[in-house]
Simulated assay, not measured.
Amino acid sequence: MSLPEYLIVGLGNPGSKYTDTRHNVGFIAVDELARRWKESLSTEKWNALSCRMVQWDCRLTLIKPVTFMNLSGRAVAEYAKFYKIPVQNIIVVHDDLDMHPGRLKLVRGGGAGGHNGIKSITQSLGSNEFFRLKIGIGRPGKGDVHADFPVEKYVLSVMSAEEASLLEDRIASIEEGIRMFINDGPAKAMSIINSIK
């Protein structure tokens, strides 16, 4: 019997200058998940770096699109089509300006909220019914971030040591949330992930 297929997408921009920026928290999270599972996203095809594995009685494909953010959907659509992954089995991990740093939230559907990666995926899949695991990065004018800091510059700036440490602390919760999503269903996963403020 074939195993159910799931796709986990980390969003970010390729290139060393974007490595530790806030907009790349999706890349960072997916890389760390792969590392925990003794894998690395080293295979490049269909405009993404990827790896495939069997985990929790399913087949997981992890990808990081290597196009820039606003074209991320091309890779997602290619992988979903080739491996016949239904849209409800796709989790996109990405940054969110409207949540404070370190907050996690799992949602299904909804608008892109100005996020070009999400817009591109929705367009390429022809659906917004995939799941999104949002990682808060805060926004200018909130917390310690000066209101005059342009948003475009803020998301492409390197995270502070405190923000990076907070993200690192959240990886275990992200991993457990994905496990619950697969084994126990989205509602259970949401109840755990969305309680992390």
Rank of each mutant, 00 (worst) to 15 (best):
K38T: 10
V107C: 07
Q88T: 08
E162N: 06
N194A: 12
P4C: 02
S42V: 10
Y6L: 13
I8W: 03
A187Q: 13
I91D: 00
V145H: 08
A112P: 03
K38S: 14
G26P: 10
V107P: 05
G126M: 02
M69S: 07
E176L: 12
G109K: 15
V107E: 07
L133V: 15
N13Y: 13
A161D: 05
E5C: 07
L62D: 07
V107K: 12
D98H: 12
A147Y: 12
L167Y: 01
A112F: 04
S16H: 13
I91A: 00
Q123K: 07
G177D: 06
I174N: 08
L156H: 12
E44G: 11
F181R: 07
R103H: 07
G26K: 00
N47C: 15
E163A: 15
L7V: 00
R59G: 02
N13C: 08
T43D: 15
S40Q: 05
L133C: 15
N116G: 03
R170Y: 02
M180H: 13
S16P: 15
K105Q: 05
L11N: 04
M99K: 14
I28K: 03
L3A: 05
K153L: 14
G141I: 12
Q55Y: 15
N70E: 03
P101L: 15
I28T: 03
L71R: 02
P4K: 09
N24C: 05
R103Q: 06
G136L: 07
A161N: 03
S165K: 15
L104K: 14
N194T: 11
A189H: 05
G185I: 09
K142Y: 13
K84D: 14
T122P: 00
S127A: 01
E168Y: 04
D31H: 05
A164H: 05
K38C: 05
V87W: 08
H146C: 15
V158Q: 12
V87P: 11
G177N: 10
E5M: 09
G143V: 04
N24G: 13
K153E: 12
R170G: 10
L7P: 00
T43N: 15
V87G: 12
